[in-house]
Design a protein around this nucleic acid. Structure first.
Lengths: 336, 336
DNA sequence: CTGAAAGCGCTTACAG
DNA sequence: CTGAAAGCGCTTACAG
């Protein structure tokens, strides 16, 4: 059990020669409204310091119904390659606002999710961030209705919930712009949307098409496949076998790009001399490939931090935030 | 604020026609000791169900000084590639024991770490798991003295703390055994220990040497470098340039192995025909490489889960647990 | 400017 | 077998 010797407000008050009431006001920063004398204030603060007073949070919570704690529930962000940095961002933002993060992972199991939400609500977290590993449309879990919540990396069009998303459409524009700037006009796209409710691929596609259109270019073709290294490899190899060629290839994530690299190498095609590659994620993997992969980075830490800040902001407007992506330049795009 | 309508124990008791005392005993499973009549018990349970009674955790904690919550503090496990699955394991184990995980990341900042520990202790977590991204020797933070704690993936030889570690020495034996079984006798090792207090490399080396010795083999040589893709690439290339050759190469992690793959490919050497490669981690990266990398897998989820279970086990003996690694077979070792 | 008092919702000796 | 009562450590109207 996590014990410290138990110094109570009573102890502080006694040592300072005041009542608990006065000590409480002072220690909670209400000296001004209460017009506490400077002398009294100094005595109380001194006593608190001397005794190393730590307010009992359970007692406080019992009265105030707040716990200085936020819940963060997700399907699977901790086990994930870089999505887990949403957790890091959330944790840091929470601390800056004097809160701590209570986390739970459902692994996609609805019953476990229900349990976790229930436990968090039981513990009176001050709100819940509901996050998904992959950007998509969801239905707000029943247990979250009536609970202060922010959706992170997902959205429920049918619910009135604050929502923090990456700006995938803008990201799509950035990716296309890299190729346009290099003077490439023959562009293929690898990977669209793996599952029906996923949103990232579709939005990126919109941005890609829009940006290319500005340069008078249309997407030459799309190879659809799951967003994994193995699928990226197989799909690219098949495409090449069927005579597929392009000046530029936009991959929907870094893993797909890794697979594409492998298939291109096998076919004797060099990146970027024979074909330029751009992808999405900006994960560590992008920097590991040779040549380094130019990738449009998802702002995971910022997403996590923003979700927590909005959750704890009483004036939050409740709409949807789209956080911009940014290009992490590698050497996979041909220099003009 | 996370509100539900507030049904209290009082409400349940009234509806069941008993006192709060009796209701409390029943709902906490003390019916037997208290020899509550079955009829009373049924009435109380029925009332609790009817009213959807949820005990107020803050009130309970104020009395019991327990919160059904465990702290998990680390330098950087969330942002990490796969180490973050320690979090997943911890979260699941905690839930199974009706606890929730309160997490905090210090990013290696001692002041932030101190703050996080303080906040956790203030919130009366029932114990703290102190985890590091990378296996190493640490000094138990001052704020954790006197607090129930378990070290995860790290150890403090000077402190009496329960400790959960991967069995890196056993892992070293497994890696070497893969090469021995393939009949390889000329073995090099890539990467030793990047920092003085890191323990993984040294222990793996001990296991590697021991296992090879059983086959009458000595390590032919060691290339020292940081455990990154870039360093792995550069070190392997330099080694090859200096005329380095081996039948088998043991890499201290999957990233190093990826770098080695790149350098070997550049030199026209094929895996596993020209050289066999084994590494450590068993991360997703291992399965992405071509050929798939045979890698000794670190049991991160189990490590996290075990740490939490020990933390919450009042009978825990307090020693060090070494959790075995296991081989994830790929195609990077030549078949005999 | 400061204090006595109520009350947040539980648990748990104690008494019968 | 069951209940009246104390008490965990705070916050906050209320009174002066």
């Amino acid at each position: 059990m996590a014990l410290r010797r138990s110094v109570t407000l009573e102890d502080v008050a006694r040592r300072a020669g005041v009542s608990r009431t006065t000590a409480s006001y002072i220690l909670n920063g209400h000296s001004a409204q209460m017009r506490i004398s400077p002398d009294t204030e100094a005595r109380v603060r001194g006593a608190a310091t001397d005794l190393d007073y730590r307010p009992n949070r359970s007692a406080r919570s019992l009265r105030t119904r707040r716990t200085a704690t936020v819940g963060l529930i997700s399907d699977q962000i901790a086990g994930e390659q870089y999505g887990s940095s949403m957790l890091t961002g959330a944790s840091i933002a929470a601390r800056e606002l004097d809160h701590l993060v209570v986390m739970g992972e459902s692994g996609g199991d609805p019953e476990l999710e229900r349990l976790l939400i229930e436990e968090m609500v039981d513990r009176h977290v001050d709100g819940v961030v509901y996050a998904t590993r992959t950007a998509r449309t969801i239905r707000l879990p029943a247990g979250l209705r009536g609970v202060r919540a922010v959706l992170l990396n997902c959205e429920d069009p049918t619910a009135q919930v604050a929502c923090v998303l990456p700006d995938d459409e803008g990201g799509g524009r950035l990716a296309a712009a890299e190729l346009v700037a290099a003077g490439l006009v023959h562009v293929w796209v690898l990977g669209v949307d793996p599952v029906p409710d996923a949103t990232a691929g579709r939005r990126r596609m919109v941005g890609i098409r829009a940006e290319l259109a500005l340069a008078g270019i249309a997407v030459a073709g799309v190879v659809d496949c799951d967003w994994t290294v193995g699928e990226g490899f197989a799909a690219t190899r098949d495409w090449l076998t069927r005579g597929g060629r392009a000046e530029g290839l936009i991959c929907m994530n870094d893993r797909l790009a890794m697979g594409a690299y492998q298939a291109l190498a096998e076919a004797g095609l060099r990146v970027p001399d024979d074909i330029s590659v751009v992808s999405f994620d900006g994960s560590a993997l992008a920097s590991w490939l040779r040549p380094e992969l130019t990738s449009v980075e998802l702002p995971f830490p910022e997403l996590g931090a923003l979700a927590v800040r909005r959750l704890l902001d009483p004036d939050d407007h409740g709409g949807t935030d789209s956080v911009p992506l940014s290009v992490r330049a590698g050497g996979s795009v041909r220099r003009r």
